[in-house]
Design a protein around this nucleic acid. Sequence first.
DNA 1: CTTGACCTTAAAGTTCACTTTAAGGTTAGG
DNA 2: CCTAACCTTAAAGTGAACTTTAAGGTCAAG
Lengths: 139, 139
Amino acid sequence: MKIGELAQESGLAPSRIRFYEREGLIGSIDRGLNGYRQYSRETSQVLEIIVMAQQAGFSLDEIRNLLPPHAKADWSKDKLVAALKNKVIEVAALQRRLSETQAGLEAVIARIEGTPTGGDCFENAEAVLADLRDQSKAG
Amino acid sequence: MKIGELAQESGLAPSRIRFYEREGLIGSIDRGLNGYRQYSRETSQVLEIIVMAQQAGFSLDEIRNLLPPHAKADWSKDKLVAALKNKVIEVAALQRRLSETQAGLEAVIARIEGTPTGGDCFENAEAVLADLRDQSKAG
DNA sequence: CTTGACCTTAAAGTTCACTTTAAGGTTAGG
DNA sequence: CCTAACCTTAAAGTGAACTTTAAGGTCAAG
C-alpha cells in the first residue's frame, strides 16, 4: 500500500503521515526498490489511534510516549500480546481524559442552566449570565 | 479587581486575559482613572467556561461565536447550552468507540493467550490483525 | 517518448494560541 | 524621593502541528 492509498483510507494527508513518521509516531516502514513507502493495513489502525488520542487532548509528544514499541511485524506471540496490552492501557488513558472533559462540560452546563431545586446553582448561573451580558454590552 | 488578582483567581496569565479581550472573547471592561482594568468577580467564571470549552475541543473562534450577543436579550444561554450539550454527545460517541476498541482488544488478547504456541505465529498475527480490522470497522 | 499522476526530500511557510519584550505610567512602602 | 511591584500598549517571538514549495525521480497510458 503506497502513501496515497493509506492517505485515502485514513483520511489524513500524505504530508501529515510523513510528518508523523519524521516525528517518530509511526515507525520506519518498508520501501520499494523505487524508494516509495510500503505500508501494511495495520498502519491505518495506528493512525486512527493517533487521531483519537489527539481528540482526547493528547499532544503528539504524549502520544509518542504512549505508543512505545512500534516494532515492526516481527510478531511473536509474546510481542503481539505485549503490544496489544499496551494498546489497552493507552485506550484506557484516552477514556480517562475524555471522562474528565465530559465531567467538566456537564458541570458548566449545570451551572449555566441552573438546577430547579438548587438555589445556589441558579444564583451562580444568573451571575454568570449577567456578567456575560454586561461585558457584551460594553464591547 | 485588577488583572493580577483575576489572573491569580482564575489561574490564567494576565497576558492571556488581555489576549482574550483583544480577540473579543470577553468584552472590554471598566477602567479606573489610571487606565487599569477593573473586573467583576464573575469574570473568572467566564474564563472558566472558555477554558472548559477549549478542553472540549472548541477553538477560540468557535467560542467567540458562541458567546457574544448577535441578536437580542435571549442570545446566549440556550445557544451556549445547546453547543455544550452537542459537545457532550460527541465526546460520548468517542467514548463508546473507545469502549468497543477496548473490548475488541481484550477479546483478541484472550484468544491469542488461549492458542497453542505452534510454528504458526504468523498465521496468528494475520488473524489478530483481521480481528482488529473488523473491530475498527464495526465501531 | 511524452504526459500526468504519483512518489521522494529538505526547507520554508502557515495557523493557532499564546508569551515575551520594549517602553513607559501608577502606586504602595521605607 | 526612591524603589519595587504593579499596570498600560504595540509589536515581535514561540511552539505545536501541520502544509506548501521547490526540485526532482518513477510509472502506466497513449
